[in-house]
Design a protein around this nucleic acid. Structure first.
Lengths: 231, 231
DNA sequence: GGCACCTCTCGTACAGTGTGCGAGTGCATT
DNA sequence: AATGCACTCGCACACTGTACGAGAGGTGCC
């Protein structure tokens, strides 16, 4: 996971291809199934090999190390994102942001990859490239095109990541709003500012609140970007 | 790392205290030294024990598992952040955002913790509480106070996290702007939109560009939040 | 003094991890 | 028939977090 030096699967030629047994596609597909079912910690080379009816180390013929495999599945995640064309930039940016969030929530393990691995795969490039086109069409110029793009994705990462962490930490225990309220009160007991104006009803439907919070921030970010447009 | 059920060091009473040998403080201090020197992957209970002149498993008297230890060091990170008082909210928010970024860059391993672990420690509470006060003083009301806060931190996380990932992946090889330009050209060869208006000089001083990008987004986010204020 | 108890340390062991190495298999080409 | 390539995989290594239980040292009570 922690990179030793800068390389990427996407910067070197893949194996010759035309193999009878395993294949990258098959390996990636099985990995994603395992990841969706058991999370990032549940993906081990041995388990993956077993799922494929192969030895663990056979995978290393197709992939240099686990990190490369993760880069491959990572790009599949990008492949699920919607980058709309032929609509106004605000609309396009909104749709993209919502779709990023949906994809991340659908594949919680992707939160551990997003922003950590180099995003140089074809799907990531498609999205990044569409986003650049979108912001250029909006009127941004020069480096601002990239600044705007990274501002948008930064917000979506940063907002969705804790949401996912929270979901996963909750998923194995049934959620009890009352217990939660009690917990918050305990944690905040010495911090009056944390309680002032706190809406306790919010804990009844946390995912609804999360959605509203996401939208609030997204609108703010888009408004802020709009102000940066050259007159 | 992946939580089984929702608990936190901060929600249970610590050990009685008054111990002759080790102590939580000492353990946390040594952990941070190890983390700063070798990163998250470099922190193992055995290494930590060795550094403390103790057995690896002795640590488990003070801490239930490694995750609890991480929660403790995590809160120390929050302790390094500056939450200014008695200044206008925009100024306060800027200072806080910059200080979050600085702290993260100073402790790159914190990027793997931020947003993943529950932030219920005293230092995290101090910052969160100050931030709520700040946004309430700015004029936000009700849930908007929290929405504004999480928008700001989301941006800072999301922006700084990839920056850190990039730094760490670069740190072990000397950075060569020319090689980098070549790499980008290779990765983007089939995506004309990625090259259009690309500023190749940017690769000469990447950290300067990162700082400018951070500021661009921060100003945008603050502008956007300002527009959400009730008239 | 003797005994019980509590606090704290730590060696050992277990079940797992990623992956380097080298032997082995089967097919295609010469 | 022989050579070589594409591919598989068992084994081994060094490492991880941590459960368990034995033991050490101190304190308080009878």
């Amino acid at each position: 996971m922690t990179g030793k030096q800068f390389t990427s699967v996407w910067l070197r030629e893949p194996r010759k291809a035309a193999s009878p047994g395993l294949s990258r596609e098959e390996i990636v597909r099985a990995s994603i199934e395992l990841l969706d079912a058991e999370g990032l910690a549940g993906l081990s080379m041995r388990k993956l090999g077993a799922k494929l009816g192969a030895g663990a180390t056979s995978i290393y013929w197709y992939v240099a190390h686990k990190d490369e495999l993760l880069e491959l599945v990572y790009d599949e995640v990008w492949g699920e994102m919607t980058m709309p064309e032929d609509v106004g930039w605000r609309e396009a940016a909104s749709v993209l942001a919502y779709s990023m969030r949906q994809v991340m929530l659908r594949h919680p393990w992707s939160a551990d990859l997003l922003g950590r691995l180099p995003a140089l795969g074809p799907n990531a490039m498609r999205v990044a490239s569409g986003m650049r086109r979108m912001f250029r069409q909006a009127g941004f110029e020069g480096l601002d095109v990239d600044y705007a793009g990274s501002t948008l994705t930064a917000y979506v990462y940063g907002r969705t990541l804790p949401e996912i962490a929270w979901n996963t930490s909750m998923s194995d225990r049934e959620y009890d709003p009352d217990e939660m309220r009690k917990m918050v009160l305990t944690a905040a007991r010495d911090y009056p500012d944390m309680l002032e104006g706190l809406d306790f009803d919010a804990y009844d439907d946390p995912s609804a609140i999360q959605a509203v919070a996401f939208d609030f921030g997204l609108v703010s970010v888009l408004d802020g970007l709009e102000r940066r447009l050259p007159a």
